[in-house]
């Protein structure tokens, strides 16, 4: 099974409780480094910025931005580095409640045909300063 090291970093926000907080409508700057451990023939490597719900209810989700960063053959131990800057949406804000949580994340997916995808995510908080 193909494997890869994926590093995601985000900047441009405030650090709150070990996570980065961004203002709704603000700018998130990020960088992604994907280092395949084996040669991988992938359909696409995609950076997605989106939210999903967690908790008691069935999962709801939404994608704000989708950035394709590579496709085709990825050579073993050859890193792919990609920087991006995204204007964040104004809603929904991050939320932690009793039955519902709203989680924002930057997610990198290596879509491999006829095999499980390789995923990594970096969570962040989308909420105004209180």
């Amino acid at each position: 099974m193909a494997t890869a090291d994926i590093q995601i970093s985000v900047s441009g926000g405030d650090s709150v409780g070990g996570m980065m907080r961004f203002d709704p409508g603000g700018t998130l700057q990020g960088a992604v480094q994907v280092t395949p451990r084996d040669n991988i023939n992938c359909k696409a490597v995609t950076v997605r910025l989106g939210w999903h719900t967690e908790g008691r209810g069935d999962r709801a989700s939404g994608n704000a931005v989708e950035i394709p960063i590579a496709q085709g053959n990825l050579s073993a131990n050859t890193p792919i580095y990609h920087q991006f800057s995204v204007i964040l949406p104004r809603e929904p804000w991050s939320y932690a409640g009793h039955y519902i949580n709203i989680i924002w994340e930057v997610k990198v997916t290596i879509d491999i045909p006829l095999a499980p995808d390789i995923n990594a995510a970096q969570l962040f908080v989308l909420a105004p300063r209180r």
Partner: peptide, 9 residues
């Protein structure tokens, strides 16, 4: 939090 309505949440 603001008013929020999504699939089943």
């Amino acid at each position: 939090m603001h008013t929020f309505e999504a699939y089943r949440n």
